[in-house]
């Protein structure tokens, strides 16, 4: 968990740095009176690195993936709940009393 958060923060910081570099680069272009043809190489690299890091953090930090297959162990239903709303007490349990000292102490 800790590593994931650190990596995520790092990724976001790199993205911010890329934004800052772009603004700086555009300012430089204005001074040099050149046309904007594309972002510089280091900004593109930073963007890609930031994307990978933040994506990795976004996928690992919130938790594991849950299965959506109906036949996976977590989703496969093996028995229905006993219908307790319709439970009846008129059964053979009456003939077999429990052998334990059940008493409420207060």
């Amino acid at each position: 968990m800790g590593i994931g958060v650190v990596v995520g923060v790092l990724g976001v910081l790199i993205l911010f740095h890329a934004a800052y570099s772009t603004i700086q680069y555009r300012g430089l272009l204005k001074i040099m009176e050149e046309e904007f043809s594309g972002p510089p190489m280091n900004v593109v690299l930073e963007l890609l690195l930031g994307l990978v890091l933040s994506m990795w953090a976004g996928l690992t930090v919130p938790g594991n993936f849950l299965s959506i297959h109906p036949d996976s162990e977590e989703n496969r239903i093996v028995s229905l709940p006993a219908n307790l709303d319709f439970m009846i007490f008129n059964h053979r349990g009456r003939v077999f009393p429990l052998e334990m000292n059940v008493k409420l102490k207060n």
């Binding site: 307790l84 439970m87 007490f89 349990g93 009456r94 009393p97 429990l98 059940v102 008493k103 409420l104 207060n106």
Partner: peptide, 19 residues
């Protein structure tokens, strides 16, 4: 209490109901 009814331990149920 419901489990005790199912096991026919009615004395326990009565105590619980009082509480």
């Amino acid at each position: 209490a419901i489990a005790a009814m199912d096991c026919q331990c009615l004395d326990v149920v009565k105590d619980y109901l009082k509480v």
